[in-house]
Amino acid sequence: MAVLKVGALMRYYINNQPQAVVHGATVLEALQDAVTRYPALKFHVFDSNGKIRRHINIFVNSQNIRDLKGLKTKINEDDQIMLLASISGG
C-alpha cells in the first residue's frame, strides 16, 4: 500500500481528494491500480497505447522516476507517489 498524491489539476479525477491509497509492487502496478479505482484518471495518465502521457511527471518520495528505474521502480508501503502535469505556455 502506498499513497498516490495528485496536483490540484487532477484531484477532480480522484473524487476531489488530494490523495488516494494504491496497491502494487512497482510504480506501474500502483498506477494501474489507481486507474482501476478511479477510471476517470486513466485518460489523463495513459495514452491510447497504454503508455504514460508525455506531459505527466511521476515522483516517488520527491524523486523523479526518470532518475530511478522508471515505471519499474519498486515501491514500499510508506512511499508517496506524486503525479504532476508539465506546465508551459507562450
Binding site: G7, F59, S62, N64, M82, L84, S86, I87, S88
Partner: peptide, 22 residues
C-alpha cells in the same frame, strides 16, 4: 525554456512544480 525561446515561451520544470506543490 532554452535561451532562444524565452522571449515568447515559458516552461516550469517538474522539479519546480513539485517544490510549488510542497
Amino acid at each position: 525554456r532554452e535561451d532562444a525561446a524565452r522571449h515568447n515561451r515559458y516552461l516550469i520544470t517538474p522539479q519546480d512544480y513539485l517544490k510549488a506543490e510542497m
